[in-house]
């Protein structure tokens, strides 16, 4: 092979490799991305049946319940317009508390959201940005009835 030809093979090989990697990354991306919904979107049926998603909002005060001695816990997530009941089995994070923001991963089973992961990864003065944004939006809607 002449040096020119070798370089051509090398360049073509690199291009092929990069495109394969790109295609695979894109398909992994499509399959593994989860969307965020707030309780209003969930109750209005924005979520496809069986889809995994992230539910975010505030934990309603006084809604946390568990059978004594059981790992299974029930609570209600709200955006102050609509509520979604959540069930979860496992250890809750340190920052999980009634009246605080929360984000949970999981899917709907009937009208209950079954979470397999609960996140409260923010500190005391800080709210998950997507929850803060959703609450702001819902608040703005109540201020202007009939708005979007």
């Amino acid at each position: 092979m002449t040096p020119r030809r070798k370089r051509l093979v090398l360049v073509l090989g690199i291009i092929a490799g990069v495109s394969v990697a790109g295609a695979l990354a894109l398909s992994a991306f499509r399959q593994n991305v989860t969307f965020f919904f707030d309780p209003t979107q969930v109750t209005s049926g924005a979520v496809a049946t069986g889809e995994r998603f992230r539910l975010g909002g505030m934990v309603t005060k006084g809604s946390v319940q568990r059978a004594p001695g059981s790992l299974e816990v029930h609570f209600v997530v709200t955006d102050f317009k609509h509520d979604v009941p959540v069930s979860y089995t496992g250890v809750l994070p340190d920052l999980f508390r009634e009246g605080q923001g929360v984000v949970a991963h999981g899917k709907m089973s009937g009208t209950t959201f079954v979470a397999d992961e609960v996140l409260a990864k923010h500190d005391e003065k800080y709210m998950p940005p997507e929850v803060a944004k959703s609450l702001k939006k819902r608040q703005a809607e109540s201020a202007t009835p009939g708005g979007a």
């Binding site: 593994n32 989860t34 992230r54 944004k133």
Partner: peptide
């Protein structure tokens, strides 16, 4: 386009 999250599975 909506609020999405990309995690370990990706």
């Amino acid at each position: 386009l909506g609020t999405l999250s990309v995690g370990t599975p990706y």
